[in-house]
Design a protein around this nucleic acid. Structure first.
Lengths: 204, 204
DNA sequence: GACATAACAGGTCAATCATCCTGTAATCAA
DNA sequence: TTGATTACAGGATGATTGACCTGTTATGTC
């Protein structure tokens, strides 16, 4: 028997990262456990030790890399941007650039898993919904921050944030179906008008 | 051996309808062939005769009930409506009412399958994308019809139609994750402003 | 009425998959 | 040191699944 690694945190991270990549590309049901094991380069015993069931692994992937993906590509860029409009623009442009560069659209990790797992398991659905919530809330907070506290637009910042997340999620889905960035570009074209009109109204 | 039905069109339709319901509720990978067979109430032989592979059945479901679902819930209502805005409103309101009535969100048949199958099989992806195309085109045509032929807004009717489809698809996905109609309501709240602003601009 | 073919009926089968099991080595607490 | 527990290694297993296969009966054609 070959020497074992004995690095629980490392092994666990390898497995979760491999599962994240496969779940995102092939889906949850489309990914057998042995594919995760092989990509992670661990033994069946190690995999079973850290994740007794596939659902445990799914939960860990959602709480880890999926949440981080939304935080890294959406929540942090929007928080750092000069305005909500500029933040949303940067995310759309980065996503479009990535599609043009790679030539393929794997889809949004959160959206892919939400579509597949929401009606299958309540525990997983709850975690996925929590990420959607944080995503919407981050955009809504940025929208409110750039307006005077008593502006009329504040009360629908939540609805607008919802619209932005829905637009992006839906556009990514269409981009995936067409394997092109066109739906994302078309969506941003119109979304830009909406956001800039609102910014000018807030400044006036 | 029991008497066979000998009704090829009927048998085929039973199978396709059963598969449509299961694919929509449980997903493509989440639906075994024997579940389709049992729900349709046909024999394994009949199923294999009409659909030698699962992919054949998937293709038939997409070309049939999935395409009809978009045509029946979106394309026809929008075409019949007094305006694009009124048409889109009626679809959102009907969808929200249905969610409130049933208490659950199974998701959009097209969106569910597009999320799961787009990166898995090009033939299926192509068919799904064709339905998205017809959906966008139907809304774009309605948007253009209510404006003077030389209006400035015409050139981005396609982009706005894209936005509407993306919003709806994304909102349905969030509704599925939250198992509530709230994301759809929030989306329509904002979309309504956009569409009505455009209508008044076109009328003036 | 002979023949070919389509439309089943019902069961089989090989492959895949998630889970579990047995054995072993590293770690750690006492 | 010793005993317990954690962290693996490598394979086994039972269930599931998509596809297929053999027989049988309608249906249409000449």
């Amino acid at each position: 028997m070959s020497q074992r690694t004995n690095d629980p945190e490392g092994t666990r991270r390898q497995v979760v990262n491999a599962a994240f990549e496969l779940f995102t590309r092939k889906g949850y049901e489309g990914t057998p456990m042995h594919a995760v094991r092989d990509l992670a380069g661990v033994s069946s015993g190690a995999l079973a030790h850290h994740f007794p069931t596939k659902r445990d692994l799914g939960l860990a992937v959602i709480r880890g890399p999926v949440a981080e993906a939304i935080a890294g590509t959406w929540i942090e860029p929007v928080a750092r941007a000069s305005s909500a409009s500029a933040g949303v623009r940067s995310v759309f442009e980065a996503t479009i650039a990535d599609i043009v560069r790679t030539g393929t659209v794997a889809g949004c990790p959160l959206g892919n898993l939400a579509a597949e797992l929401s009606t299958r398991n309540d525990a997983l659905r709850f975690e996925l919904n929590a990420i959607f919530d944080r995503w919407r809330e981050a955009i809504a907070a940025k929208l409110q921050a750039q307006q005077p506290p008593d502006a009329a637009g504040n009360k629908d910042a939540g609805a607008l944030a919802n619209l932005i997340v829905a637009c992006f999620s839906g556009a990514i889905l269409m981009a995936k179906a067409s394997q092109s960035a066109v739906p994302l570009q078309a969506c941003w074209t119109h979304l830009q008008n909406i956001l800039e009109a609102r910014t000018q109204k807030g400044d006036g």
